[in-house]
Design a protein around this nucleic acid. Structure first.
Length: 469
RNA sequence: GCCCCGUUCGUCUAGCGGCCUAGGACGCCACCCUCUCAAGGUGGUAGCACGGGUUCAAAUCCCGUACGGGGUACCA
């Protein structure tokens, strides 16, 4: 399909953190570039100086790097290329394809109200020869007839009547050009061959193409509009409505590989339906023509599942390294963190970890001196009700006695606890677990118990026992 | 309102006229395994929006209707 190697761009506006919808667009561009040995360009669309804040730039690059989506060229900043756009606007004015307009929004609205005109701007200044100056906007002279036809790689043929398009603003009253001009100029300048972006931009495409033709840029790039990512309300993912910052997922312990894997599955699927696979295989199979047309729901449950698969597939040593660096980056630094203990428990932990944030409750009792008391007491009482507290007390008493002089290893500990259960015909494991870990559920008990000091375990059992009295 | 796009299990998808009594995955439910919880295994649940065509044959093609979404800015 692509004879020459394609050049694509990811062109976000710096308006806060990067969210998963943008990340998906970036990923598809990247996949496409990789698939056809093309070039992936990062371009920051900060034509609107009011919105673009410097700290937002990193908010784009950091998550992209985290995901492993390296760009080959850029980042280019449109704010640094303003002259080019101004020049383009001037060209359009010279060739009578654009004109100065002094109308304010209010004036336009008032006129439209009176005349009942519904097509946006009414063309009031089209032939008024308004001269340029402060506060004057430039509008493109949209052809009154004809159509713009887009052969969208995802959607097929899409047609827009020129008569439906208003004379849109291409330069603001403050002299800065809008993104439509910047888009056309940059895509031409950077020799972009394929524009891959969200469907929310589909309606702006005819305007850019009209500008493109008016500027005599030759053959426009091919377009591919991806289905939108939506939230549980079925509306476009937005920062306002949904919590979708890439950095949040990172903080929760989503692995970048899992994230890209999941994102690749939204709006597209490998033909053989094998969903979880290395990114290289995704690249080899990727094809824009198989991208779906309908919006995709961003399903965090499935993301978590995929993440769990990735975590389980990790070699234990890698998992340990990952867990340690995760702890370093996040809010909880285990006091007695012990790499060796982590290594011993790694396989058991991996099975129970969907996201890295799941680790804290699993290992808290192992790496901290004290377990949360409230939990401990509450849980004990709960189990006490089910089993009768005397029984629980009996179990703990006997376990304490026997644990004091058994040999201190996984098997012996297990034998003691299950032995007590048998002699008292009670469930012994759960009360001990609560006493020692503070929780009713968790890792298989005996292995991590053996890692800790006997004295510490005994002490916790005694503490718990005393709360029952 | 107008323009544009879309519609296969709750969700993501396979399907590009006969292989479909519609397949997979997530979720959910049950059972097995089991020191709790997981993981794993087995089974189950549930879908072609509707109405007309075209055709020997339609989830697949065409036209309507309904519903959903996007856009409609001196945001991108």
């Amino acid at each position: 399909m692509a004879l020459e190697s394609p050049r694509v761009r990811f062109a976000p506006a710096p308006s806060g953190y990067l969210h998963v919808g943008s990340a998906r667009s970036a990923l598809f561009n990247w996949l496409f570039a990789k698939r056809f040995s093309g070039t992936f360009i990062l371009r920051i669309e900060d034509t609107n100086a009011d919105l673009a804040k410097p700290e937002f730039y990193q908010a784009i690059t950091t998550p992209l790097e985290w995901l492993g989506l390296r760009w080959d060229e850029g980042p280019f900043y449109q704010s640094e290329r303003t002259e080019k756009y101004i020049e383009a606007v001037a060209n359009l004015i010279d060739s009578k394809l654009a004109y100065c307009c002094e109308c304010t929004r209010e004036e336009i609205d008032t006129r439209n109200k009176e005349t009942g005109f519904q097509g946006g701007y009414d063309g009031y200044c089209r032939n008024r020869e308004v001269s340029d100056g402060p506060g004057i906007t430039i509008r493109f002279m949209t052809p009154k007839t004809g159509i713009v036809e887009i052969d969208d790689l995802v959607r097929g043929k899409v047609e827009f009547q020129n008569s439906e398009l208003e004379d849109f603003v291409i330069r603001r009253g403050n002299g800065t050009p809008v993104f439509l001009v910047a888009n056309a100029v940059d895509d031409a300048d950077m020799r972009i061959t394929h524009v891959i972006r969200g469907e929310d931009l589909l309606n702006t495409t005819p305007k850019v193409i009209l500008l493109w033709e008016a500027l005599d840029f030759g053959k426009p790039p091919k377009y591919a509009h991806l289905p939108l990512l939506v939230g549980d309300d079925r509306k476009k993912l937005s920062k306002r409505r949904h919590s979708v910052a890439l950095s949040d997922f990172r903080n929760q312990g989503i692995l970048p590989e899992a994230m890209t894997n999941y994102l690749a599955l939204l709006g597209w699927g490998p033909p053989d339906e094998k969903e979880i696979r290395p990114i290289q295989e995704m690249i080899d199979l990727f094809d824009l023509e198989n991208v779906n047309k309908s919006p995709a729901f961003f399903d965090e449950k499935k993301l978590r599942h995929i993440n769990g698969e990735y975590i389980r597939a990790l070699p234990p040593e890698d998992f340990v390294t990952l867990a340690i660096s995760y702890f370093e980056e996040t809010d909880w630094q285990p006091t007695n963190l012990n790499r060796q203990a982590l290594a011993i428990l790694a396989p058991d932990l991996q099975e129970r970890t969907e996201i890295l944030a799941d680790l804290k409750p699993l290992v808290y009792w192992i790496f901290e001196e004290n377990i949360p008391e409230e939990t401990n007491e509450k849980e004990l009482k709960k189990i006490g009700k089910a089993m009768q507290s005397e029984k629980v007390a009996e179990v703990l008493d006997l376990v304490i006695t026997q644990l004091k002089d058994c040999s201190w290893d996984e098997n012996s500990i297990g034998e003691v606890i299950s032995g007590v259960g048998e002699t008292l015909s009670a469930k012994s494991q759960v009360p001990v677990r609560i006493a020692v870990t503070g929780r009713r559920i968790g890792l298989p008990l005996y292995k991590p118990m053996a890692i800790l000091e006997r004295s510490l375990i005994i002490q916790r059992l005694i503490d718990a026992r005393s709360k029952l009295a």
